[in-house]
């Protein structure tokens, strides 16, 4: 799982059957302080996230299969939680 910020929404009409009716976002992985880290990922929304939200993304192979009850699910990254607040103490 990783912390990310929802950046943009992807609109598409031609897609794999498993993606029909699902919202696809581009997310930017971030550090706990909010600075961008690494390259963007594409993730499917499972919790009703919106653009600008801080979220947790994750999902191992096969997770999407169980979550959406599909036979075939070529889905790797899911938005699985919206973050309200992070309490942390950086050791640096």
């Amino acid at each position: 799982m990783f912390l990310a910020r929802v950046e943009k929404k992807i609109i598409s009409s031609q897609k794999h059957d498993a993606y029909k009716g699902k919202i696809v976002f581009a997310v930017q992985p971030v550090s706990p302080d909010g600075t961008a880290k690494g390259n963007e990922w594409i993730a499917i929304d499972y919790v009703g996230a919106g653009i600008g939200d801080l979220v947790i993304c994750g999902g191992a192979p096969g997770v999407a299969k169980n979550v959406f009850g599909l036979d075939l699910a070529p889905i790797r990254t899911l938005i699985i939680a919206i973050v309200d607040k992070i309490n942390y103490h950086d050791i640096n």
């Binding site: 943009k8 609109i11 598409s12 993606y19 696809v24 075939l72 070529p74 889905i75």
Partner: peptide, 25 residues
Amino acid sequence: DASQAFESGFAPVNASIVELVDKIV
């Protein structure tokens, strides 16, 4: 997950296209 994009779910591929992007907003 790339194999899952195939109807059979059984294919020796490391990456598969799943969506054609129209617009990014």
